[in-house]
Design a protein around this nucleic acid. Structure first.
Lengths: 142, 142
DNA sequence: GGGATTAAGTTAGCAATGCTAACAGAATCG
DNA sequence: CGATTCTGTTAGCATTGCTAACTTAATCCC
């Protein structure tokens, strides 16, 4: 199989898989952007709204809306940064951490059920390739 | 690497890659849902709004909005189905086909640049695994 | 045949996501 | 100290997505 035809398949498969995953996320009743922001905070630790926006590849204004909703729901807190009067530090609350843990577990459980019976070595190769592509995409931004 | 840790990596890598791809799609200036609907019509052929909604995993009402926008832009046409007075047949126009071809080419070009230098065999394995997962996810819906 | 049910498309109304533009306050650079 | 830059905020808009209610057409069943 040529590299190009592999990429055609990869593109279409990823697109449709992500569409299916959205339904798993929707069952959490929390909005996709909000769930995703919680995930960044959970796996990357506390950071500023601007850094969060950059991670999620959305505008600062959009992230501001998302954080306002999350704070209203008591899932994150925004605290002023003492060393820089312009910045804030966004952190998960206890409830926020519990929420993202549950949502992440649901995703992984869905994946595990889907992948049952798939060759473990091939799966590991796929994970390695996708992770490699992910890192290259990150670098390409700068 | 255990299956579970492969899935953790796969989940996170896919999520971030799709986030990056959104920016490529956005450059087409056409809205993600509209672009995605065009892709279904392009690769799957003409079908009814309901079938389109099922493919995209959105409600009929949502797909109706998307199609109204696409028709206003002259990218699709909706024709009555003679054999069933309730149904319609949605088809790409010449401009619609040109639009989705261009957008798809942009995605693939982005992938090719990203994947340059990656082992072709590993890439083929990844494509096969993801395509397998995609098919399983489709079946799981029924 | 005819009423009941089901299916398809539409509409209304709402919420969430996302953008740009414009602004205010704080930090930094010259 | 003035100009610039950075951060967060707000306003206003378009798109995406939902459910509920409705219309019309097809089908089911008695």
């Amino acid at each position: 199989m040529s590299t190009k035809s592999s990429l055609l398949t990869l593109n279409s498969a990823m697109t449709q898989l992500m569409r299916a995953i959205r339904r798993v996320d929707d069952a959490q009743g929390l909005g996709r952007a909000r769930l995703s922001a919680l995930a960044v905070l959970h796996f990357g630790g506390s950071c500023s709204p601007s850094e969060l926006a950059e991670q999620e590849m959305v505008s600062r204004a959009t992230m501001h809306h998302v954080l306002t909703g999350l704070e209203a729901d008591g899932l994150v807190v925004r605290q002023p940064d003492r060393s820089d009067g312009r910045r804030q530090l966004v952190s998960l609350t206890r409830r926020g951490r519990a929420t993202i843990r549950k949502a992440h577990a649901a995703r992984i459980a869905w994946f595990e059920e889907l992948a049952s019976g798939i060759d473990a070595a091939a799966l590991a190769t796929a994970a390695r390739v996708l992770d490699d592509l992910r890192m290259r995409a990150r670098q390409r931004l700068h």
